[in-house]
């Protein structure tokens, strides 16, 4: 069992938890993820590592309520435990292996969308700890949905919040902020974009035009996450890659986002049904007209 030491709501439907997982905390690096399983009958859910404390043996996870399982998970409190907590999975970000001195000569731009701020944070923090300042754009729909602002500001060289509705920071999508920074004369050697698939797609379309090499972190459907089932396959440069062992980070200019987005929809009907089950409990008898009432 893996105990939750802290559980906190960061914004509407977005939660943060500190979980005791010494083996994971000892070995994880920026760019990697974990899989959690709440209980005997739960799903294996891949989640971002937002932070880690090697000495305390804890991992910080951040997740958004998107389906029945994450809705259930949001109800867990400090003191509760996950039945299973597996990781770190996937490959660390490339820069972890790179020569620090040559990294120092690179100008890096991080672009986070929504909960994407969570996986971006440990990367920016790691670079800061190695003496490298980077620019960070964090976008969200509205001011209230912006997460980890204080933390990000503390580790970023320049921090640029953006909101779609203009309630805070730069008004508009993250892509318009990238354009603006480049127009202002900023030159970037590499961009790391993490967030919803659609945001990564449009960021990549832009950075391709701007000729900035871009790394994205894919979050496809996964089952085991250890290189066995093949559910997480993504097309990169025309080749089938497995996000759990080959990724999750890939060259964003080579990723087939349209295919990835279609694949993400695969269980939408089942998932919608499962959410209704949770929300309506025993009163769910197919009144929705969609599911035929499977209770």
């Amino acid at each position: 069992m893996y105990k939750i030491l802290k559980a906190e709501k960061l914004a509407d439907k977005i939660y943060l938890m500190d979980v005791e997982a010494p083996r994971v905390a000892k070995h994880c690096e920026p760019g990697q993820f974990v899989i959690v399983k709440m209980d005997e009958k739960g799903e294996r859910i891949p989640l971002t590592i937002c932070d880690y404390d090697r000495e305390a043996g804890t991992i910080t996870i951040v997740f958004q309520e998107v389906g029945a399982s994450t809705m259930k998970m949001a109800k867990m409190q400090a003191g509760d435990s996950f039945r299973d907590f597996i990781g770190p999975l996937g490959c660390p970000s490339e820069f972890v292996e790179e020569d620090i001195e040559s990294l120092k000569n690179k100008k890096m731009l991080f672009v986070a969308g929504g909960v994407g701020a969570a996986p971006v944070y440990p990367q920016v923090k790691w670079l800061k700890e190695h003496g490298i300042d980077v620019d960070v754009i964090v976008g969200s729909k509205t001011k209230d949905m912006l997460i980890l602002e204080k933390e990000m500001e503390a580790v970023a060289g320049n921090y640029y919040p953006c909101t779609d509705d203009g309630t805070y920071g730069h008004a508009g999508m993250v892509t318009t902020k990238i354009e603006k920074l480049v127009e202002e004369g900023n030159k970037y050697d590499v961009c790391v974009a993490i967030g919803p698939m659609i945001m990564m797609k449009f960021t990549c379309l832009l950075t391709k035009k701007l000729e900035i090499p871009t790394i994205v972190s894919m979050n496809p459907i996964m089952v085991d996450g250890t290189g066995m089932c093949g559910a997480c396959r993504v097309i990169v440069g025309g080749e089938v890659k497995f996000a759990c062992v080959d990724g999750p980070e890939f060259d964003g200019h080579l990723v087939d986002f349209d295919n990835a987005m279609k694949r993400q929809q695969m269980y939408r009907t089942e998932e919608g049904r499962a959410i209704l089950k949770v929300q309506e409990g025993d009163t769910h008898h197919g009144g929705c007209g969609n599911c035929g009432g499977d209770n």
Binding site: V223, D224, G230
Partner: peptide, 20 residues
């Protein structure tokens, strides 16, 4: 082959056997 509804036997069986 990357269409929705194409699975590896490993995935199909893992969902049914391991994840029940």
């Amino acid at each position: 082959e990357t269409a929705n509804g194409v699975f590896s036997a490993n995935e199909y069986l893992t969902r049914s056997n391991l994840m029940k």
